[in-house]
């Protein structure tokens, strides 16, 4: 009897998580309040579709241990959010904004099992000369081994500019090194802020920039892809 009660309780918990996941907007871990920049209630997950934009580009990246990996293989089998950054970014509307949004989602995943299990976030540097694997590991800024399960978050870089350039080109990610009036490298980049949503089949399904980087929208989109998978599986 105890076993069946436990099983029932577990089933209810799973069902509850599934319902919360399906609802998306009801995820307990995500702050759903409106802000001055996002003064609207987000759409309910699963009530809209996300068109396929293009295949996920691939390329050789380095993980935090310095191991050479295929970007596409690294995120294969899960939904991914891929953000291009550099750790020295000084533009408050640039990389710090994108990373802050991913932090929000990472936090939310602690209370959202579907996010924790199905979402893989990637912060990929476009400044390989400075952002070594060691720097990216330090940039992580949180302990991966404690607390509730959360979405995996990889902090990647590349071995060289030669490895990076085709990745940027394929993603259509504009990055320009900034120099001062004397032509001296400022250690800064002008760049188009982009975060890419990739489905489990390796297809880009949304692209976010300024004005769209509302964690509520990104989480709703992830849950919309999960709802799409459930529909496809039931057919």
């Amino acid at each position: 009897m105890k076993k069946s009660l436990a099983a029932a309780a577990l089933g209810a918990a799973v069902l509850s998580a599934a319902v919360a996941a399906a609802a998306g907007a009801a995820d307990p871990g995500l702050d759903m309040a409106r802000t001055a920049q996002f003064d609207f209630d987000p759409p309910k997950a699963g009530t809209y579709t996300l068109p396929v934009i293009k295949p996920l580009p691939d390329g050789a990246v380095l993980d935090e241990d310095g191991k050479r990996r295929s970007l596409r293989a690294l995120v294969a089998g899960r939904i991914a959010l891929i953000s291009f950054i550099y750790t020295r970014c000084s533009d408050p509307n640039g990389c710090p904004l994108a990373t802050a949004v991913l932090y929000d989602i990472h936090d939310a995943s602690a209370a959202d099992r579907a996010l924790a299990e199905n979402l893989h976030m990637v912060s990929l540097s476009f400044d390989p000369a400075h952002d070594t694997p060691e720097v990216m590991a330090g940039f992580r800024g949180f302990d991966t081994g404690s607390g509730p399960a959360r979405s995996e978050w990889s902090f990647l870089t590349t071995a060289s500019q030669a490895d990076l350039d085709p990745i940027l080109a394929d993603f259509d990610q504009v990055v320009r090194r900034r120099v001062d009036a004397q032509g001296k490298d400022m250690g800064l980049y002008a760049h188009q802020l982009r975060v890419y949503l990739v489905d489990r089949r390796g297809r880009v399904r949304n692209i976010y920039g300024l004005g769209f980087l509302d964690p509520r929208l990104l989480v709703a989109d992830v849950h919309t892809l999960l709802a799409e998978e459930r529909r496809a599986a039931s057919q």
């Binding site: 920049q37 970014c89 408050p92 904004l97 330090g138």
Partner: peptide
């Protein structure tokens, strides 16, 4: 405008390297 993470205080408990990075960002 820059929108701080919704729970910024929590995220500021970062590593020294990350704090350095944030410091650079402020100076930047």
């Amino acid at each position: 405008p820059f929108r701080a993470p919704r729970r910024l205080g929590k995220h500021l408990s970062l590593t020294a390297l990350n704090l350095t990075s944030l410091g650079l960002a402020a100076a930047g």
